[in-house]
C-alpha cells in the first residue's frame, strides 16, 4: 500500500517543489546539471538524511530527541580512538559505531520516558551532557590518523562514478527504515503509539519498549552517521557535528513528519532533506551568499507547516463544538 493520504500530499508537494527548483536550476544555474554536482549534493546531504531517518522513527512514536548529533560525535570519537589503536576493519568499524550509538539511544529512551518531562527539554540536557563529557575527555583535539582502508573516497564504482560510503550508508539505512515501517508490524505499532499512546497502552503495547526501540534506532543510525561523517572528513573533531540538530528537525518536519506523532514516511523525509540541500546547492552555485540558506530554510518549513496546521488544528473552542 502507498503512504497514507496526508503523507502522500506532502510527498507530492515536495516532489513538485524539487522538480521546479531543479528544472529551473538546470536551465539557468551553471554547473548544476553536472552529475558530479549531484553526487556532491548526495554525499554532503547524506549525513543530514541519516539523522533525519532516525529522527523520523522517534517523531512517529510521538517523541522527540535532539541529542543525536552529540551521540554521533561520541561514537565517531570512540571509533577514531579504536582505529588509532588497532585496525579493526570495516566490520569492526561499523559494529563499534552502531553499538555506541545504540547504547546512548537506549539511555535517552529510558531517561526521556521515565522523566515524563517534555522530551525537548530532557534531550537538550542530554545533548549538553554528552557533548560536554566528550569535549572534556577529548580535550577538543582533532583525531585524523586512520588506517588505510578507512581513507578511500570511493568504496566502489558504478559506471565510472564513485559510490561513497556515505551514499551506501544512506541507501542501506533508508531501505532498512522503510522495511521496518512498511513491511513489519513495527511500523504500525510506532504509528499507533504516536497517534494515541493511551489506547496503545490499553491494548497491550509496552510504552517503554516502543520508546526504547524508537530512541535506540535513532541512536544506532546516529552512530552510523558519525562514522559516515568521520570518513567523509577523514578527521574527527569533537563538536563539529553539534549544532546541526535543528536543521535536521526542520528537514524531517518538512518531509511530512509531525511533532504530534504518528505521521511521516521515509520517502517524504528524504525529499525534505533533498529539498533543503538543493536550495543550499543552488545558492552556492549561483554565487548568492550562503547565509541566505538558513533564513530560506526556516521560512520554507514554516510555510510548509502553516497550511497543514491551519486546516487540521482548529481553534481551541471549535474542537469541542
Amino acid at each position: 500500500m502507498a503512504e497514507p493520504l496526508r503523507e502522500r500530499s506532502a510527498i507530492r508537494r515536495l516532489a513538485a517543489g524539487i522538480g521546479l527548483l531543479g528544472g529551473a536550476a538546470a536551465l539557468w544555474v551553471p554547473g548544476f546539471a553536472s552529475p558530479y554536482n549531484w553526487l556532491d549534493l548526495l554525499s554532503s546531504s547524506s549525513i543530514t538524511a541519516l539523522f533525519a531517518l532516525g529522527l523520523l522513527v522517534v517523531l512517529m512514536a510521538g517523541e522527540l530527541d535532539i541529542s543525536f548529533t552529540a551521540i554521533a560525535s561520541v561514537s565517531q570519537f570512540l571509533l577514531a580512538v579504536a582505529l588509532a589503536r588497532q585496525d579493526i576493519g570495516w566490520a569492526g568499524t561499523i559494529v563499534v559505531s552502531a553499538l555506541v550509538g545504540l547504547l546512548l539511544g537506549l539511555v535517552n529512551g529510558a531517561v526521556a520516558t521515565w522523566l515524563r518531562a517534555p522530551p525537548i527539554i530532557t534531550t537538550i540536557a542530554l545533548l549538553n551532557v554528552y557533548g560536554g563529557v566528550l569535549a572534556l575527555i577529548s580535550r577538543g583535539e582533532m583525531l585524523y590518523d586512520f588506517p588505510d582502508f578507512f581513507t578511500y573516497t570511493a568504496v566502489a564504482r558504478i559506471g565510472g562514478y564513485p559510490l561513497t560510503l556515505q551514499t551506501i550508508a544512506l541507501a542501506v539505512t533508508a531501505v532498512v527504515t522503510a522495511l521496518m515501517l512498511k513491511a513489519t508490524n513495527l511500523g504500525r505499532i510506532l504509528r499507533a503509539v504516536g497517534g494515541n499512546r493511551d489506547a496503545a497502552l490499553r491494548l497491550g503495547i509496552n510504552g517503554m519498549t516502543v520508546n526504547l526501540l524508537a530512541y535506540g534506532y535513532l541512536g544506532l543510525v546516529s552512530g552510523i552517521a558519525g562514522l559516515a561523517h568521520a570518513q567523509l572528513l577523514q578527521a574527527v573533531t569533537p563538536g563539529s557535528l553539534i549544532g546541526r540538530e535543528l536543521d535536521v528537525v526542520a528537514a524531517t518536519i518538512l518531509g511530512g513528519a509531525s511533532l504530534a506523532g504518528g505521521r511521516g514516511g521515509v520517502v517524504g523525509t528524504l525529499l525534505g532533506v533533498l529539498f533543503i540541500a538543493l536550495i543550499g546547492n543552488i545558492l552556492v552555485l549561483s554565487g548568492v551568499s550562503p547565509y541566505w540558506h538558513q533564513a530560506v530554510t526556516g521560512a520554507i518549513v514554516l510555510a510548509a507547516v502553516a497550511p497543514i496546521a491551519w486546516r487540521h488544528a482548529r481553534p481551541a473552542l471549535a474542537e469541542v463544538a
Binding site: 522527540l64 525537548i120 535543528l246 536543521d247 528537525v249 526542520a250 518536519i253 511533532l259 504530534a260 547565509y291 541566505w292 540558506h293 538558513q294 533564513a295 530560506v296 530554510t297 526556516g298 521560512a299 518549513v301 514554516l302 507547516v305 502553516a306 496546521a309
Partner: peptide
C-alpha cells in the same frame, strides 16, 4: 503551529 516548530523556524530565519 506547535511552539517548538514555530520558534525553531523563526530561529533559523532570524539567525539567517
Amino acid at each position: 503551529i506547535a511552539p517548538i516548530i514555530a520558534s525553531l523556524g523563526a530561529l533559523l530565519v532570524y539567525t539567517g
